[in-house]
Nucleic acid binder design. Structure first.
Length: 732
DNA sequence: GTTCTAGAAC
DNA sequence: GTTCTAGAAC
């Protein structure tokens, strides 16, 4: 293991008083992390150890674990430590942050230099420790930068220093070099040019495959976007190089984080934007309510307005302050939307606070004239009095308050994490917003400056009622497909049933086929040969003694062949003809109770072995395997067999029916309410604890391995979660 | 070029 | 249910 150790002699007696620091460098390859460390170490009187993953394995690339171990040991010796690896995303930093404690400050130094620079350094360097050379470097650097998440104090850092150019780096170098063994640095976040500026173009998804506007192109993706860059520069000279755009991925994709980005929708072409009625709106419900932007943009596309073929090039996203679009962004937007709160009050945070502050008391008064409160999904258009600074300075004539879905229990109309409903309400909210915008144009039609014949006051009509204008085939197809996905599923399902029904000889309808498949028209899925394994075991457990953990007259217990968590059991019902939950009636109540009790007994047994486990017992609405089976699954979901979205969602959406709820429903209604909706299985991936959306399975798995947020309230009720007795009183 | 997803076959 | 794999996404 190689560690570069600054062995500057320490003044006697002082080494015990000094507080070591762990400095987590954050930056792409070529951003100058190693150089930074080396330069600080060369001039510092503090003992530093540089821990470099590229060299920690006997001069070769090592593991994160090795780095952690070395760092811990150096800190123990009272030395300060540089963690010299990219650390670009939160998950990567999490383990190293744990090195911080009351006696060890955790700092981040972010080397957020232009990607071009990082790439050129990476490409040029020979014999770099990370062995990142040649043309591949560009791709790697770009890729890493697309995923980067800036560190936040809330992650646990006591101090964060952002460096966005060479002089920032020099300043940070000076700060750390001057740090003697006894010195400490002030806590806080320093040097970020615009903490809210993240290039997050989620809503730009509907521009995807059209063009990436130049003003959102940061250095981070200048290589990838260089072609479209030029086109747009010609079209939109005035937005080029807007200085709110400081960093991050310029990629309109699923990787994007949530934040304060705006979409701007104008009735005019970009060239004459300044004259056309234009609406600017923030992303609604993405941050507070953890909708990811991808989902939100899908929803915008699905709104009535968008479906009716708004010219997509009339939408663009812009990162900046919605209250300073003209004075700082050079954008004339006469209408701005506010992500309001239900009371339509100033305050709170984010966009609402910013707009009420900027608009002054006039907005509050004008708002109260229109409405006292707002329901989720609704919007209210408020004409802005000319006395408001937003009117005089920014040229805003209307503010449209919109209320998105509410997932906060402390506010009215809480959806309790029902994301399907949430999406419907978000859809409604955007529709209300666009309709509100349309109404401002109708009423102001005569006032609107019209410089182009196409841009008349009927544009809104065009938006709402639809004129089949330009629409790229890609987008068209996409929105059509998703539209079908969301709304025509019932038809599709019906269709497939009909098809299958048509292939089944009439004699079999309502009878039992050779696989004992009941076919009664409402349920026509035949079990494939691969789906019979559990049925065979339930019918002949003695033959399968090797896999059975327990056999009784009523049930067979076995480990899931492909466990999706550390502990994952199946409790099989042994009744013939009981293939799935849909077959269950009141007659089976006792059997269901037995299955539950057996499942509980096994969960408790496992909890004795490992009290940190948490179990959930339940059924899949539509199982893949024949024979009613209860899943007893630990909530770590730590398993290599958990590979697909479908796996995750089958245990973590309404598709999974808790055994306690099934018992309750069967006892009161004689049957369980199934969530037979395939869309549940293709829903976005959300952490089962904090409900944050994750872009893909690997990221989800990485996230859940660290997330310790309490489970959502719905799961904490009615014994849906089974905990060790010693944990029962505390939030899991 | 690599990673990730999703559809088909079993 | 899984595996395999094409091709989309990065």
């Amino acid at each position: 293991m190689e560690m570069e150790i600054d062995d500057t002699p320490k003044p006697k007696g002082e080494e015990t008083k000094g507080k070591p620091i762990v400095v987590i460098l954050v930056g792409a390859p070529g951003s100058g992390k190693s150089t930074f460390c080396e330069q600080v170490m060369a001039s510092s009187t503090r003992p530093w150890v540089r821990i470099c993953q590229d060299t920690i394995g006997n001069g070769k690339s090592g593991t994160k674990a090795q780095c952690l171990k070395s760092a811990a040991s150096a800190l123990n010796d009272g030395k300060s430590v540089f963690i010299d690896r990219c650390n670009l995303d939160r998950e990567q930093r999490a383990e190293f942050l744990k090195l911080g404690n009351p006696n060890v400050d955790a700092h981040a130094v972010v080397l957020d230099l232009p990607a071009k620079l990082c790439i050129s350094r990476s490409v040029k360097r020979t014999g770099h420790e990370g062995n990142l050379q040649g043309g591949k470097a560009a791709a790697v650097v770009n890729r890493m930068l697309q995923k980067k998440e800036f560190p936040k104090l809330s992650e646990g850092f006591t101090r964060i220093t952002f460096c966005q150019n060479e002089s920032d780096v020099q300043a940070a170098h000076n700060t750390y070099s001057a740090l003697g063994p006894l010195d400490t640095l002030p806590n806080g976040s320093f040097g970020q040019k615009n903490p809210d500026a993240k290039i997050q173009l989620g809503i730009m998804r509907f521009l995807k495959k059209v063009e990436v506007p130049a003003y959102t192109v940061s250095d981070a993706n200048s290589i990838q976007s260089s072609v479209s860059h030029k086109n747009i520069e010609e079209k939109q000279p005035s937005y080029k190089g807007h200085d709110n755009i400081s960093s991050c991925s310029g990629n309109a994709s699923k990787e994007l984080k949530e934040g304060e980005n705006l979409a701007v929708c104008s009735s005019g072409s970009h060239a004459s934007l300044n004259d056309a009625p234009t609406l600017a709106f923030p992303s609604i419900s993405t941050s507070d309510f953890q909708f990811n932007l991808d989902k939100a943009s899908d929803i915008i596309v699905e709104t009535k307005a968008a479906q009716k073929n708004i010219e997509l090039n009339k939408f663009f996203t812009f990162v900046g302050d919605i209250t300073k679009l003209y004075s700082e962004g050079g954008l004339r937007c006469n209408v701005i939307a506010n992500a309001a709160n239900w009371r339509l009050k100033p305050g709170g945070g984010g966009v609402n606070a910013a707009i009420f502050n900027a608009a002054g008391p006039a907005l509050e008064v004008a708002t109260k004239e229109q409405a006292q409160s707002l329901h989720p999904g609704k919007a209210v258009v408020v004409p802005l009095p000319p006395t408001s600074p937003l009117f005089s300075r920014e040229g805003v004539t209307h503010v449209i308050h919109v209320l998105g879905p509410n997932m906060n229990q402390h506010r009215p109309n809480c959806l309790n994490n029902d994301y399907i409903k949430g999406c419907q309400i978000l859809h409604e909210a955007y529709t209300s917003l666009f309709e509100g915008f349309a109404s401002t144009i109708k009423t102001q039609g005569k006032l609107a400056k019209v410089s182009n014949e196409n841009l008349d006051s009927n544009w809104a009509q065009e938006v709402i009622e639809g004129a089949n204008t330009k629409h790229s085939p890609n987008n068209d197809q996409k929105s059509k497909r998703e539209h079908e996905h969301e709304y025509d599923r019932s038809k599709k399902c019906k269709g497939s049933q009909d098809e299958i029904g048509a292939n089944i000889p009439e004699s079999k309808i309502g009878k039992v086929d050779k696989n004992n498949d009941k076919i009664d028209g409402s349920m026509a899925k035949a079990w494939g040969s691969w789906a019979q394994a559990l049925h065979k075991i339930a019918m002949h457990p003695q033959i399968h003694k090797d896999v059975a953990l327990e056999i009784s007259d009523d049930v067979v217990v076995l480990n899931d062949l492909y466990p999706k968590a550390r502990r994952h059991l199946l409790v099989l019902a042994r009744s013939e003809g009981l293939d799935r939950l849909a077959d269950v009636s009141k007659d089976h109540l006792q059997l269901l109770k037995t299955m539950h009790d057996v499942g509980l007994k096994w969960a408790e047994k496992f909890l004795q072995e490992d009290a940190s486990l948490i179990f959930r017992l339940g059924y899949h609405s539509v199982p893949s395997m024949r024979q009613l089976h209860l899943h007893v699954i630990s909530q770590d979901f730590d398993s290599k067999n958990l590979k697909h979205k479908k796996h995750w969602n089958s245990f973590n959406t309404a598709f999974f029916l808790d055994s306690v709820d099934v018992l309750e429903e069967v006892s009161s209604h004689g049957k369980a309410t199934l969530r037979d909706d395939e869309s549940l299985l293709s829903m976005e991936l959300r952490c089962h604890r904090c409900r944050s959306a994750q872009p893909n399975i690997p990221r989800l798995k990485s996230h859940i391995s660290n997330c310790r947020a309490p489970f959502p309230p719905s799961l904490l009720q009615n014994s849906r979660l089974v905990l060790a007795p010693c944990n029962a009183g505390i939030d899991p």
